[in-house]
């Protein structure tokens, strides 16, 4: 094998990151009532937990981000993202908000961590498993 060192991260409150492109309204939640206009509803700009669009929008947001960073989507597994650069490879496997990644070159991993942390709020899982 190639001696990849695996790292794991997860995205904090992932579904809140999804951008919504449809018209969805919510009634005024408790604590956020507008006393002058109690009959008003709010139009959503971003996804919320419990919304049926939430998971799709999250995947859209994350995959678009990775694709813009030069990653390629796996042909069979659409949640695998791959980037090749000068004989080095980085593999990023996504499971909803959990991301597991490894590379033949450790600096690619560090680079990945830095880029993704700029985009999303992440938490790093401790430890590393080598395979």
């Amino acid at each position: 094998m190639k001696g990849l060192r695996l790292h794991q991260m997860d995205v904090k409150s992932a579904f809140l990151n999804g951008l919504i492109d449809e018209e969805v309204y919510v009634s005024e939640p408790p604590g956020f009532e507008d006393h002058n206009n109690p009959d008003y509803v709010f139009k959503l700009k971003k996804a919320l937990y419990g919304l049926k669009q939430a998971s799709r929008q999250w995947y859209e947001r994350l995959s678009n981000f990775l694709l813009s960073q030069g990653y390629e989507r796996g042909k069979t597994d659409r949640t695998l993202f791959i980037k090749n650069s000068c004989n080095e490879i980085i593999l990023v496997q996504v499971y909803v908000d959990d991301i597991i990644f490894g590379s033949t070159n450790e600096s690619l991993c560090q680079q990945f961590v830095a880029t993704i942390q700029r985009e999303f709020e992440m938490s790093m899982m401790g430890g590393s498993i080598s395979s």
Binding site: G74, K75, T76, D77, L80, I82, N84, I89, L91
Partner: peptide, 10 residues
């Protein structure tokens, strides 16, 4: 399926 999967890994 495994063959396709492995081809993604190069």
């Amino acid at each position: 399926w495994l063959k396709y999967q492995l081809s993604d890994f190069g």
